[in-house]
């Protein structure tokens, strides 16, 4: 009897793909480095050229790791939101959470010009951006939740999320109006999204906060699965609804906040990847879905980043443009396809 299906083949395949695209991502770039040299450097050997070692270890490797963290983190956030709101179109971007993080960062970068002094110290500390972005995303998410408790209609919740998104962007516009060109440019570049430019120290900060968020997800697997039956059933199964919801919100805002802080607001991954995972694994069990979306999200962002750096060229496209180019068709396809869309 097939009581609990196992997904060994799918997970094995995805893990292999992750490694392949990880290596591919590192080997692509404006400078061509032979594959054996890459393996040599990654395994701690000494390369023929010093510059290759610098490129790989201080530039490409942190960028590939960032891609994995960002891709998996955003996808997990998206899955949590879709289950919590029982709405297949929920995601960190649609619900205005990414915009909240943007507002936090905008206040920090642009606000420093207006309010001066005190903020300046914060900008240059690694934690400053992360805290500002997480606070921003948490505030918007809380506001969405409060509104969601009052309306209970999933369509209204999405519209409210979009409204919060446009509210925050108009606040950002007002801030930008009063800021000088230099700061606006700084903010604009941040908002294009970028996986590169992270030092190992920054990556350590990023990774630490990311891990805290990921560890949290283990504690909400049970409530997430019971939410599949709706709130009343979840409650009758002994779930503390309020506490579970707060933990889920906290995890989402930590993950979305820290990711947005270090890589800019990246669209669509959080919305599209959970649906890919649900199709590939055809299950709603979060014990399977959580690792699945993490793997798929990481792979897809590695691919997007490889495309963004335009192999063999000196230019790098904004990552946000690539994910939208990839994500928008998926969302359209999901809606046009007459099949069922699952929570």
């Amino acid at each position: 009897m097939n009581l609990s299906k196992t997904y060994t083949i799918q997970f094995l395949l995805l893990s292999v793909l992750l490694i392949v695209f990880f290596i591919a991502n590192i080997s692509l770039g404006s400078v061509t480095i032979p594959l054996e040299e890459i393996f040599n450097i990654l395994s701690g050997g000494i390369s023929i050229k010093d510059s290759w070692e610098t490129i790989i270890l201080n530039y490409r490797l942190p960028k590939a790791i960032t891609a994995i963290l960002v891709g998996s983190g955003l996808s997990i956030s998206g899955l949590l939101m879709q289950t919590l709101f029982r709405n297949p179109l929920a995601g960190p971007f649609v619900l205005g959470i990414s915009s909240g993080a943007s507002l936090g960062v905008a206040l920090l970068i642009l606000g420093s010009g207006i309010f001066g002094g005190a903020f300046l110290i914060l900008i240059f500390s690694n934690w400053g951006l992360a805290i500002a972005a997480s606070t921003g995303s948490f505030l918007v998410l809380s506001a969405v939740i409060i509104a969601a408790n009052r309306v209970r209609n999933t369509m209204s919740i999405l519209i409210i999320g979009l409204m919060f998104g446009s509210l925050t962007s108009s606040v950002i516009s007002v801030l930008a109006y009063f800021s000088d060109a230099e700061q606006i440019q700084q903010y604009l570049f941040w908002s294009f999204g970028s996986l590169g430019n992270l030092t190992w120290t920054e990556l350590t900060v990023f990774g630490t906060i990311y891990l805290i968020g990921i560890l949290g997800t283990f504690f909400v697997i049970k409530p997430l699965n019971s939410f599949l039956l709706g709130e009343n059933y979840a409650k009758s199964l002994g779930i503390n609804i309020k506490r579970s919801r707060n933990i889920i919100l906290l995890i989402t805002s930590i993950l979305t906040g820290v990711i947005t802080a270090f890589s800019g607001p990246i669209a669509f991954i959080g919305l599209a990847v959970p649906h890919l995972a649900k199709m590939l694994f055809s299950t709603s069990n979060h014990k399977v879905l959580l690792p699945a979306v993490a793997l798929i999200g990481a792979i897809i962002l590695l691919i997007c980043d490889s495309i963004a750096q335009l192999p063999t060229s000196e230019f790098t496209l904004p990552i946000n443009a690539i994910t939208s180019l990839f994500g928008a068709p998926i969302v359209i396809w999901l809606l046009v396809r007459k099949k069922k869309i699952y929570v």
Binding site: L3, R86, N225, S226, L228, L229, G230, N232, Y233, K235, S236, L237, G238, I239, N240, I241, K278, S282, T283, S284, N285, K340, I341, Y342, V343
Partner: peptide
């Protein structure tokens, strides 16, 4: 909630949200 869940169970009229839960998984919940 926890105490009550081992004393009283419910079958409600509300529709379940659309998910891919199988019958076995649903009962297992």
């Amino acid at each position: 909630n926890q105490e009550l869940s081992t004393t009283l169970s419910l079958v409600l009229t509300e529709r379940l949200p659309l998910s891919q839960l199988t019958v076995f998984e649903l009962v297992a919940l």
